[in-house]
Design a binder for these strands. Structure first.
Lengths: 169, 169
DNA sequence: TCGTACGATACGAGAACCGTAACATCTATT
DNA sequence: AATAGATGTTACGGTTCTCGTATCGTACGA
């Protein structure tokens, strides 16, 4: 630990690179596992994989219009009609008319079925609770911040691909 | 643990609970963003969302049979035929015959198109690199370990739902 | 007032999902 | 050894999904 030479630097660099690779690797695996979990839960409610993703965006970014949702998710506007149909049929959302623009529709998340959904996530949630018990508050805050920033990076990367696909130049 | 001074404990507990909630919240958002990113990338290769998830499992858990893959992902065996057809058509995998069991097929991941795929992830990857530069090696290892364990939790939760759905008792 | 832009959905072609069945092969029992 | 049943994979088909285009109602600038 006390080495005066570049030995420690090289070691630190090696650890850093190794851990960085591990993180991206684990991130990819985590993404796959969460997708598969999402698939099971969606299927149990007779929804498609993407439907709950949209519901999440609606919950998070407030009441918004189908076209805004399409822009945010990168999905085709016509596809959103079907997604919103299913979510509405299942009472997950409500479509309301925009009082300021009578062409527009406002999609609002409903809360009634949240407990049902929560129950499906119970297994994952309690596993997470057990896992988080091993960390002290500082570490937890480190993790929370990392996840938030990574999610932001994911959104930026998605937006870039959507824009790039739309106007390939 | 030895609490005679409940003041500090209460504060730590409050921070812990708050951070735990933030983590689960961010985790869900991360999951959504990565799904949407995955959707864009899949679409750009004319694949479905789940296809790359399966490819990832194949890459990770070695050459395996379609039925093993179905068990691992919780997808219907017949669905995997279509998924593997697309992945094979795109040269992402190869189907080989199992020499030990002539009913069986062995699915092997091919590496030729990895660079192409990597290029699609370039945006996300460099964002991650920038993000990871803010952490020291110890913190990186903490993060890597956390992600690994969370992915494991995700798999366990998915398995539980698949089993529960199969035999509801 | 009129023409163009925009928001949402209907429609339809092609494709996907997955339950079932078919077929080949393996394994256990007599 | 022969047969019955279990297992692995894929074909088939009905229902449903996705998404390009068209349509319809509305907003807004000229």
């Amino acid at each position: 630990m006390t080495s005066t030479t570049t030995g420690e630097d090289a070691d630190a660099r090696r650890r850093r690179r190794r851990a960085g690779a591990d993180i991206k690797e684990s991130m990819r695996e985590l993404s796959v596992q969460l997708s598969l979990l999402n698939h099971q839960i969606s299927a149990s409610f007779e929804l498609r994989d993407t439907d709950f993703d949209c519901l999440d965006v609606i919950k998070r970014h407030g009441p918004l219009s189908p076209s805004a949702l399409a822009r945010r998710t990168g999905l085709h506007a016509a596809t959103l009609t079907g997604i919103l149909d299913r979510l509405e049929r299942g009472q997950w959302i409500a479509r309301e008319r925009d009082p300021d623009d009578r062409r527009a529709v406002i999609v609002r998340a409903r809360r009634e079925r949240n407990p049902e959904l929560f129950r499906k996530f119970a297994g994952m949630n309690s596993a997470m609770d057990g896992l988080l018990a091993d960390y002290d508050p500082d570490e937890l805050e480190l993790l929370a911040d990392f996840l938030r920033r990574t999610a932001d990076a994911g959104r930026a990367a998605t937006d870039a691909l959507v824009e790039g696909g739309r106007a390939p130049g």
